[in-house]
Amino acid sequence: MSEFLAMGGYAQFLWPAYALALLALVVNVVVARRALQAARAEVARRLAMQDGAGE
């Protein structure tokens, strides 16, 4: 296991590269999902206001 983590002496370059790629993969999913949730909440809020004004 420690041999695997050492990556033949390239660990200090290789693992940060993999960590950054993983970070990008995770962050973009989180950002996209939050944007969709926010947009849906905004639409729901506006629809509720319209319904309130119509009655």
């Binding site: 990556m7 033949g8 002496g9 390239y10 370059f13 290789l14 993999y18 950054l20 990008a24």
Partner: peptide
């Protein structure tokens, strides 16, 4: 491992797709 770059070449698996 690569015959020249050893395990360092494995960065390709995140670098090239990005």
């Amino acid at each position: 491992p690569d015959y020249q770059q050893g395990d360092g070449f494995r960065i390709i698996y995140v670098h090239a797709p990005s």
